[in-house]
Design a binder for these strands. Structure first.
Lengths: 234, 234
DNA sequence: TTTACAAATTGTCACAATGACCATTATGAT
DNA sequence: ATCATAATGGTCATTGTGACAATTTGTAAA
């Protein structure tokens, strides 16, 4: 967030430029976002995205990573730039442009260790968000709509699912993001035909019905599809 | 561009934040980009994109428009944000993050009136660009690759073609951006089937062969497809 | 041990979309 | 009239799609 605290680290930050990270994950088939409760500055006591100032001597990509780590303790998350938000009044105290980044991850994989400007960090259902500071609500909304689009042209799931997963789990990722119900047999047929998945020759464990086969992504194909795109209408 | 001149308009600009516009158009089936030759500041005498500083009291979108107008005299161009470029050393003199915008237009429609920091403005073939200042070459390259992708999911052409155009002209737009040859009958079939075009019931004039029918975009469908996307594999 | 259930998986079928072509038509120029 | 050049129309085999019905497999209750 654009939290300008009173300590004067002035020469080291660009005080008109911040970064805000939107970390998304799926829990029980619901799309969740990581929110931070701030304990200093303008945003004190309020919820917002995982943001902070860009330092003078780091790239914006590095700033996003550093800030994510500072707030959550998490180190190894792949962030992608979404876009800049630059309305004049978006930040109340002064003029601040922010660059939004996002990540798609598995909530269970990361242990949050809140630090820096945030006192808590929590997963929240994207459809039941509290009011967020500044324009962070708009950022989330814009990102969700961006993702709905993106999902149709690029494979996703690699970061959202465990290494080995069932077809239904993958389907649920799509359903959570697109917010629709899909036909199981047809989903299976289409996704299998694109050669993106490798059969692990293993079965799901501990379910009280017929166990599903486990699959993993073929990373070579995955990369290629990410670059060249494909069509996923459903 | 990120041209920090020596006049001190200091309190009015965010001196770590610039905007760079990439204006693209098609001329004789070739994709062209608008380049400016600067006459002040660090970039003096060199070619670059259409850039400048973001003022303290204008949104970044407004800054992009203002700067475009300052450099080219052109007022009514639709700009869309591409993304931010924020490597530490991208600008030599100090730390500057830039936000790239782009437009797709008809070159013949705009009369350039160079002004502000630029002495000339010229259309250049994107595949035969001179060396551009800073990371402007990278920005163009990244944008072209972004467009190749975008074109497959959203209709384009509205700003690139005259109001009334032939199917071949539209096909040439796709060919210029995708840098491939397409099959004429198949292109026709596919594009017509999506209900995006309205037959003007008019023929092309002044060609020395069978005249083609003229079409125009159905703006309602066009908007809808822009939002919801579609599949354009070819 | 049978039965009921839940979900995975396989299969079918009519229909639409695609890619690679070939064929026909229109029009100015020679 | 004939030619050159594109526009436009059509064929056809193949593949992809959506809507389902049918079958299989594993757990758990009767």
């Amino acid at each position: 967030m654009d939290n300008k605290s009173n300590e004067s680290s002035k020469p080291h930050v660009i005080d008109s430029l911040s970064v805000d990270n939107v970390v998304l994950g799926i829990e029980n088939g619901r799309l969740m976002v990581l929110a931070a409760k701030y304990n200093t500055g303008l945003a004190q006591g309020q919820w917002g995205l995982l943001g902070g100032w860009v330092s003078y001597d780091e790239s914006i990509d590095d700033a996003a990573k550093r800030i994510l780590k500072m707030i959550t303790g998490v180190d190894d998350m792949y962030l992608e730039q979404f876009r800049a938000f630059g309305e004049v009044k978006r930040y109340p105290a002064e003029r601040v442009v922010t660059i939004a980044y996002y990540a798609l991850v598995r909530p269970d994989l990361y242990k949050m260790m809140p630090g820096g400007t945030a006192s808590h960090v929590e997963w929240r259902d994207v459809h039941k968000l509290p009011n967020l500071i500044y324009d962070h609500g708009d950022i989330v909304k814009a990102l969700l709509s961006h993702l709905k689009n993106k999902v149709r042209h690029e494979p996703i799931g690699f970061n959202l699912l465990p290494e080995k997963f069932t077809l239904l789990q993958l389907q649920e990722v799509y359903e959570a993001i697109l917010d629709v119900k899909l036909d199981k047999p047809n989903f299976r047929r289409k996704i299998l035909k694109m050669n993106l998945l490798i059969d692990c020759e293993e079965k799901q464990q501990g379910v009280m019905h017929r166990a599903a086969s486990l699959y993993r992504f073929d990373m070579v194909v995955y990369q290629k599809l990410c670059e060249h795109g494909f069509n996923f209408e459903f």
